[in-house]
Amino acid sequence: MYVNVPRAGAVTLEDADNFRAFEVRVAGEQQSGSALAARLGAAAARVDDGHAWVNDAWLRAQGAPRGEAWLADFGKMIGFARKQGWVDESTQAVRAHVEWNGGAR
C-alpha cells in the first residue's frame, strides 16, 4: 500500500490491500521535510531523513470502509512494523519511505 500525495488535491491511500509494502509516493520534485509535512497534513505525524511517519489513525480511517477483515490484516502489518522498530509509540505513527516522482500524478 502507499500514501499518494498528488500535486493538488487530497492525500489518499492506494493499493490498500497490499500489506507487504508501505511507502509514501509524492508527485513533484523533492522538497524539504517541512514542505512535505504540510502537503501530507493530518496523514503524517512528522517527516525526517527520507521517511514520513504516517498516523495510524489516518490509515485506519482510510481502510475502515473495507471492513473488519481489512482492519485485522492491517493490524498484522502494524504488528510486523512494530517488531522492526518502524512504529513510533509516542505518536502512533508508522514509518514509510518517501518516493519522489517529478511527473504528474
Results as ranks from 00 to 15, higher is better:
Met1Ile: 00
Tyr2Ile: 03
Tyr2Leu: 05
Val3Ile: 12
Asn4Ala: 13
Asn4Met: 12
Val5Tyr: 05
Val5Met: 05
Pro6Ala: 07
Arg7Asp: 08
Arg7His: 10
Arg7Trp: 05
Val11Glu: 09
Val11Asn: 03
Thr12Pro: 04
Thr12Gly: 13
Thr12Gln: 13
Glu14Ile: 02
Asp15Gln: 14
Asp17Tyr: 12
Asp17Glu: 13
Asp17Lys: 13
Asn18Ser: 03
Ala21Lys: 15
Phe22Cys: 09
Glu23Cys: 14
Arg25Asp: 04
Gly28Val: 10
Glu29Pro: 08
Gln30Asp: 05
Gln30Arg: 15
Gln31Met: 14
Gly33Glu: 08
Ala35Gly: 07
Leu36His: 04
Ala37Ser: 12
Ala37Lys: 14
Ala37Trp: 10
Ala38Arg: 14
Ala38Pro: 06
Arg39Ala: 07
Leu40Gln: 12
Leu40Trp: 11
Gly41Gln: 00
Gly41Leu: 04
Ala42Thr: 10
Ala43Phe: 04
Ala43Asp: 08
Ala44Gln: 04
Ala45Phe: 06
Arg46Cys: 06
Val47Trp: 02
Asp48Phe: 01
Asp49Ala: 13
Asp49Leu: 08
Gly50Met: 10
Gly50Val: 11
Ala52His: 04
Ala52Leu: 02
Ala52Asp: 02
Ala52Asn: 03
Val54Asn: 08
Val54Asp: 06
Trp58Ser: 07
Ala61Trp: 01
Gln62Cys: 13
Gln62Ala: 15
Ala64Gly: 05
Pro65Tyr: 00
Glu68Gly: 13
Ala69Gly: 14
Ala72Asp: 15
Asp73Tyr: 12
Phe74Met: 10
Phe74Ala: 11
Gly75Cys: 01
Ile78Ala: 11
Ile78Asn: 04
Gly79Tyr: 12
Phe80Ala: 12
Arg82His: 06
Lys83Met: 05
Gly85Asp: 10
Val87His: 01
Val87Gly: 03
Val87Ser: 08
Asp88Gln: 09
Glu89Gln: 13
Glu89His: 09
Ser90Gln: 15
Thr91His: 06
Thr91Lys: 01
Gln92Trp: 09
Ala93Asp: 07
Ala93His: 05
Ala93Gly: 10
Val94Gln: 01
Arg95His: 02
Arg95Trp: 02
Arg95Phe: 09
Arg95Cys: 11
Ala96Thr: 04
Ala96Glu: 02
Val98Gly: 00
Trp100Thr: 02
Asn101Lys: 11
Asn101Ala: 03
Gly103His: 15
Ala104Trp: 13
